[in-house]
Write a protein that binds this DNA or RNA. Sequence first.
DNA 1: TCTGGGGTCCTAGGACCC
DNA 2: TCTGGGGTCCTAGGACCC
Length: 420
Amino acid sequence: MTWAILDIENFYCSAERVFDPSLRGVPLIVLSNGDGCAIARSAEAKALHIRMGAPMFQIRDVVKRHGIQCRSSSYELYADMNRRFNAVIAEFTDTVEIYSIDESFFRLPVLPSGLGDVEMAHRVRAAVKRSVGLPTRIGLGPTRTLSKVANALAKASEKVWDGVVDLHDEGLRRRLLAAWPIEEVWGIGPALAKRLRPLGVRTTGELAALPAEVAREVGTVVLERLVRELNGIECSDFEPEPAALKSTAVTRNFGEPVRDVEALREAMVRRAVRAAEKIRNQRLQASRLIAFAHGSRFKPNAPSASRVGRLSPASNDPRVIAGMAGRMAEAMFEVGAIYTKCGVMLEGLEQEARGQLDMFAAPDPRSPKLLAALDEINTRFGRQTLRLGSEGMGVKAYDTKRALKSPSWTTRIDQVPVAR
DNA sequence: TCTGGGGTCCTAGGACCC
DNA sequence: TCTGGGGTCCTAGGACCC
């Protein structure tokens, strides 16, 4: 069996280009929430040395000089494009594992077609290009980790490989891994690379040769498994079902810094309401709530505070969750402090209690119907149609800015592209 | 002036129990 | 001065991912 991973080239940029041809062939960057920094770059923008995560205020000159196109991120569009390309992969195989917004693992051989893996990979790429309009690369190997290395190699030398690398052949593998730096390997971050360097481990070939005990000592079982996988030994099975969400968070920078307790509480409540909505969508409830607020991490003496609370019984009721988060915001607020970000995290997620609720635990037996009505109204008429009084009304200075957002091409009927 | 958001896994250490 | 040996559960923090 073969592991394959398909990733979309410069995903957010490529997704923007599908519906806006004027963005094709020109340098393009997609910005983080609040239009703060570049989180996706087209090949042309990379050629102009725009770094991943570069803050806008630092690259403004280059952007202007070279006419680099900028877009705010449109997560609805990217999520929709993600559904589309996964549907195409699913035409070839019933073993698709969505790994991230722009990558999916799947297994080959896909169908008894008589074609080799590499040939099939090219077919999948062509189908995604034709049906969805997105450019891709595919890595193949006997384990997930090796397919990720193969994918990275395909990315690094586009011209040499034509978008598909297969690391099954041991000779080829030895040769390529010997020249591949460990920092580029899935699972090796800066800290691990730093600990491996003194041991003389700099290339992926050297990493693969590390004895298991040493790997475990330097890293953890995670590194030990990684080394095994580099040697072609599978350490993880195919996961047919997406794993249940264990925690979720809604955290945002403020559009304008916050200095008063009312604004902090209201912003916190808005995030809490959104977090509660997210877990209701998945029929989950939370047993732990963490609220935090802090100032700029680039400024000394910036405020930073958080509070942890237990939700007992577990809940997904915005009145409960936002109530607690709002009280926490008031409790952590310091007079004179300047806050630039706050957020709410929900943990200990479990399946929603179905059927009869505990009559002593449930504050209000009408709640399930009320929440269902809330979600239905907000789905039909738009988020925030029905809201808590404590959320406040209208757009506030602290709300995140998204000045450069493209139209909602695929998710708003009044904004679908028109062909003339 | 201006620097993203959202996840997972692992380990160590404390609390608590018998 | 002496003061066990586990087990489990929880939490905080580090490291990694995209």
